[in-house]
Amino acid sequence: MKKILNDVEAVVDEMLEGMVAAHPDRLRRLKGTTVLVRKEAPVNGKVGIVSGGGSGHEPAHGGFVGEGMLDAAVAGEVFTSPTPDQIYEAIKAVHGGKGVLLIIKNYTGDVMNFEMAAEMAEIDGIKVRQVIVNDDVAVEDSSFTSGRRGIAGTVLVHKIAGALAANGASLEQVESVANKVIQNVKSMGMSLTPCTVPASGKPGFQLAENEIEIGTGIHGEPGVERTKILTAKELAEVLFQKVNNDLNLQEREEVAILVNGLGATPLMELYVLHYNLKALLDKKKLQVVDTIVGEWMTSLEMSGVSITILRLDDQLKTLLKQEADTVAFKR
């Protein structure tokens, strides 16, 4: 394992310190916790928005803390949900009197830890709502399992819920728009190489030189299917088809596109993929209102990509385009 670090045990701590050292005008770390909050938190009269999860997905989630997105991000160990006490501290720190929305990615661990934190905060009389992002269509949706994972689409939930909260909406309104995004956002990823959790020191799976995984999540876990390597065109087709099977987009519908690198994929390749994806969107006569290409929800140094499509209506479109000013995402 080759990484830039000192002690595998200290990697999350040093990362958080590094973020605060780099952006002291924007971020502050709650003492003794793994929570990053907006410098000015709590913002009075605004619904507080908290997200987070295991580390290793940077810029998610700390990079999205700031005006128009998150009020706090809670970092767990690498690929491990943060614990309830940390999340509870975040909730208290961002509560500006209007309640707090938790944006949770659908993993058993995240859901349980955030849930326990919400229970703790509610005992304190803080109104807390939770939304659970499950945009990953790689996994079959089923009421018999824990359902679909939350992946890159989460960033659009942050963006849109954050924008509505910034406009002074109520907790119920912010929760409801977040759920609207969740219902309309679908993603699908793939990877060319695995990644290595620092504490484990070995890659999460093995792939031959001509193999790729389709349907990989963002935790270095294996995907749902292994195939021989595909061209960018074939890849765009596979990913788009799977997403569209679920969204069932109609001609002239307005959508936003997120092409998300998993960590080690050059921007060059993301744009090549987008070129091939755009041809499919055009063939379907979709109206692409907004395209975001880059690394937003990563999986350490995994090489791979996910595509996300969000079906828009006027409200979502306006909120998506609204100003945001965070370390990693600005509009």
Binding site: T80, T83, Y107, M112, N113, M116
Partner: peptide, 11 residues
């Protein structure tokens, strides 16, 4: 609860 995290911590 406060040190394990993940799924196994709450469980």
């Amino acid at each position: 609860i406060s040190k394990i995290g993940g799924a196994s911590g709450p469980l």
